[in-house]
Design a protein around this nucleic acid. Structure first.
Length: 520
DNA sequence: GTCCCTAATGGGC
DNA sequence: GTCAGACTCATTCGG
DNA sequence: CCGAATGAGTCTGACGCCCATTAGGGAC
């Protein structure tokens, strides 16, 4: 039986340790020391995931729970806490909020102060120990003296660290190597890195496979005979809500299939709906026939991970592409092109953008499917726009941003004043953080919690991908994926971009995709 | 009990 | 999702 | 030939936008 105290201590030590190697060994020691039954739980928690499903307990409840009087001596075990989590997660319906708060308070009352801290961080997904999934995988290999490749492969195929840790511990190499891709258990989707631009992507990859990049939701679809299930990027099953994704795959004449693709809604004119509109369908739990008729989802598959009993994860991009072409008709496939010609590639990108899509993906032709990895084998090319906006306020940072004014409130000029369009904390170096903290404090006019209001004088160039409709912001518009490019010390606030400019940009976006008609 | 509004939570990008 | 920083590992450079 | 510098690859943790769901609370 592993004491919760040991995990809490380990987590705290991990935060203090420098160096990957050391952290891996610390986690490995934990995995070696725990019981067979606990290995899965310990491994999962160390990755920062408290449970398979969420518990219905967020920051607000955790903070109140933290105010309960801690126990003076440790007595909780890992199994105890796992049981509490399970119980709390299962509470539903009327009075459930109070019931969850009550159970949570009782759990926290049984924990020492240090254990409370650990539980709180675990529940909030903020372990801040400088070690998550990547190191846990290595720790499993190290703890049970197994080849790292075996563990990585097992995790890739099953997507479940807990299970891999448990099998590694109890069955060793033979058990781990026997783990296979299983139908109706989602594989970790392969991820992509941003590329500078199309030219850079081609230079990196040689003769890449180019594909449209559509702004929808990632889907992984599993089929066995007539049964079809759909999984989201995080591996959540969403089958119920999306019969329009299920049906076309059900009709494919193959017994056994796993596809990777993107799903989104299109307007009557054939242009893609904005992401936020597609999410009205994809974001829901159950099917709504009326909404489905109004916003049917179309899916476009770009990869095939398993076909008729054969797992294709290790096959190269082009072989998987060939398998995909064999079984999926063009109407369900992501438009793609393989070319060495820079001008053809450019034309393909422009074609994608003109159709209202996000951009292109460029894929290394010979790479295997690196599940869960964000290697350089897949690159994404997206459009970037910029605006010169004014800093209206800033928020004190937390964690590694402590002591810096970090998150900026951004506004455009409007009628002699400013309207806020969003916030960002991205793109800032330590040097810039230091500089902006100083500059902003010198312009402080008021404080409200962690927010410092400043005189609207500093102009900052903001890069972003898209403007979207907003209910939250006064202009009715917000920036998507805003990040700082640089401060414009050459520009006074009076020369920052105004809301008319922003609206015009939005109008140009809408010329491709008519948002106005489908917005309530 | 029903209707409407709000805050918290989870999840997509 | 985007980004900077920290760390690792392998390769290249300079004396 | 060896240690230092450099670069590529990974991982982590700062937090952004939106949407749907769920439960609570007040008015009636």
């Amino acid at each position: 039986m592993t004491a919760l105290r040991e995990l809490a201590e380990a987590s705290r030590e991990l935060g203090a340790l420098h160096g990957r190697r050391q952290k891996i060994e610390r986690i490995a020691a934990l995995l070696r020391a725990c019981s067979d039954a606990e290995a899965a739980t310990v491994a999962r928690w160390m990755t920062g995931e408290p449970a398979q499903a969420r518990l219905g307990v967020g920051p607000a409840q955790v903070h109140t729970a933290c105010t309960t009087q801690p126990a003076s001596s440790p007595r909780l075990t890992v199994d105890d806490v796992a049981a509490w989590f399970q119980e709390i997660g299962a509470i539903k319906g009327g009075g459930s909020k109070a019931a969850r708060a009550d159970r949570l308070a009782r759990l926290f009352a049984a924990a020492t102060e240090q254990e409370q801290q650990f539980l709180a961080h675990l529940l909030l997904g903020e372990l801040r120990q400088g070690a998550l999934l990547g190191l846990v995988i290595e720790a499993i290999a190290s703890a049970f003296v197994l080849p790292l490749g075996s563990i990585q492969r097992a995790h890739m195929l099953t997507g479940e660290v807990g299970e891999v840790a448990a099998v590694a511990r109890t069955q060793g190499r033979a058990g781990v190597d026997a783990l296979e891709l299983r139908l109706f258990h989602p594989v970790q989707p392969m991820l992509a890195q941003p590329a500078e631009d199309l030219g850079a992507a081609i230079a990196t990859l040689g003769e890449p496979l180019l594909e449209y990049k559509l702004d929808g939701a990632r889907v992984q679809v599993h089929k066995q005979e007539t049964e079809v299930r759909v999984f989201s990027r995080q591996g959540n099953e969403v089958t119920e809500a999306v019969p329009d994704i299920v049906e076309p795959v059900r009709r494919l004449p193959v017994s056994d299939l796993v596809l990777d693709g993107e799903a989104l809604a299109f307007g009557d004119d054939g242009t893609p709906r904005p992401f936020q509109t597609s999410m009205r369908r994809f974001g829901r739990r159950s099917d709504d026939a009326a909404l489905r008729a109004q916003l049917p989802l179309q899916s476009f598959y770009f990869d095939c991970l398993r076909l008729n009993g054969e797992t294709l994860i290790d096959a190269d991009t082009l072989s998987r592409q060939a398998a995909l072409r064999d079984v999926v008709p063009a109407s369900l496939r992501m438009p793609s092109l393989r070319t060495t010609s820079a001008s053809e590639a450019k034309a393909f990108l422009e074609q994608a953008l003109a159709a209202g899509h996000e951009g292109l993906m460029a894929k290394a032709p010979q790479a295997p499917y690196a599940a869960g990895g964000r290697g350089s084998h897949w690159l994404k090319i997206k459009q970037v726009q910029t605006l010169d906006l004014v800093v209206l306020a800033a928020e004190w940072g937390s964690g590694r941003r402590q002591g810096w004014l970090s998150n900026l409130h951004l506004g455009a000029r409007s009628n002699g004043g400013f309207v806020m369009l969003g916030k960002t904390f991205k793109g800032l170096t330590h040097q810039l953080l230091t500089w902006q903290t100083e500059q902003l404090l010198a312009r402080e006019i008021a404080r409200d919690g962690i927010i410092v209001q400043v005189r609207p004088e500093l102009v900052v160039e903001i890069a972003f991908n898209e403007l979207q409709r907003s209910r939250q912001y006064p202009a009715g518009l917000a920036l998507r994926f805003a990040r700082v490019r640089r401060y414009r010390d050459d520009k006074p606030a009076a020369e920052a971009d105004d809301i008319e400019t922003v609206s015009a940009l939005f109008a140009r976006q809408v010329a491709y995709r008519d948002v106005l008609s489908d917005h309530r």
